[in-house]
């Protein structure tokens, strides 16, 4: 069950002018968090941003020995800009952990899985990589961005998964292969690797392409989806996506981690 609590800002690390990691005290949310969970954060008491903003809980970690939640954030508007400016010690209202996490309980040590990230979509995959590593499950990372600056927290992924399991693609070729992350992934499949499940987070265009690839290859997927959210706990019905059964499903409650086979991509 999610809790609504006030957590202190512990540290903010700015990667470049658009990306940062925000660490807050873990509170009681930390121990409850599973990979794929998210939280709703109130960035200030003002009228803009007015509603809370949704962020994946990227990691449950420590800052100078203090249990912490890490959020990895890309600045796209008022809320994400405001959140970058809070001084150490500032209390932030945080509601979490929320949503359906990535399905991992059924994985066996002999399974191999893939993690596919586009841009800021790395966020929910950090704690996933940490958790899989702890359980000894082999995972390959395919991570793409526009340029090198878009591809964050590589050291963490390489530490958890092993550097040889981390592959990158950038639009401008500044890191890894020039091209799209889905091309990297297609090449791996062409090489004959079979994945038990493919965990992904990224922009809609990446999701669409990947959903098609997975359907063709008959591979199971779990996508951490995004949508504009007013509440984050299933009451406003604002965050829906169309499903193949004709319903609209809330991303905050029935997701964010959903099977791509259930999404009606044509209507999205």
């Amino acid at each position: 069950m999610a809790v609504n609590e006030s957590l202190r800002v512990l540290r903010t690390i700015h990667y470049d002018e658009h990306h940062y990691s925000l660490f807050v005290s873990a509170g009681t949310i930390g121990p409850k968090t599973k990979p794929g969970h998210f939280a709703m954060i109130q960035a200030g008491e003002g009228f803009r941003p007015y509603l809370r903003r949704a962020f994946s809980i990227a990691d449950v970690t420590k800052v100078a020995g203090v249990p912490a939640l890490e959020f990895v954030v890309k600045i796209v508007g008022v809320g994400t800009a405001a959140l970058a400016r809070f001084a150490e010690g500032t209390p932030l209202p945080v509601l979490g952990p929320l949503g359906v996490p990535f399905p991992i309980d059924d994985l066996l040590p002999s399974d191999r899985v893939a993690l596919v990230a586009g841009g800021i979509g790395l966020a929910p995959l950090v704690l996933l990589a940490r958790t899989l590593a702890a359980r000894g499950i082999a995972a390959d990372l395919f991570y793409g961005g526009r340029n090198e600056n878009d591809v964050l927290k590589r050291a963490d992924f390489e530490r958890f998964l092993g550097p040889h399991r981390c592959r990158y693609a950038t639009d401008d070729g500044s890191l890894g292969r020039r091209g799209r992350v889905t091309e990297l992934f297609t090449n791996a499949l062409a090489g004959g690797v079979r994945y038990r499940r493919v965990y992904a987070c990224g922009p809609v265009a990446m999701f669409r392409a990947l959903a098609e690839l997975l359907a063709e290859a008959k591979l199971e997927g779990s996508f951490a989806m995004e949508s504009e959210m007013a509440c984050g706990f299933g009451v406003c019905l604002g965050c829906v996506v169309p499903m193949v059964d004709g319903r609209f499903a809330t991303i905050c409650k029935e997701g964010p981690c959903v099977s791509p086979a259930q999404i009606d991509w044509a209507r999205l």
């Binding site: 009228f47 803009r48 007015y50 949508s227 019905l237 965050c239 004709g246 319903r247 609209f248």
Partner: peptide, 14 residues
């Protein structure tokens, strides 16, 4: 079923 998304957006003070 309700309306197709997007269904919400934030505006100034609301």
């Amino acid at each position: 079923h309700g309306n197709p998304p997007p269904r919400i957006c934030e505006t100034d003070a609301g």
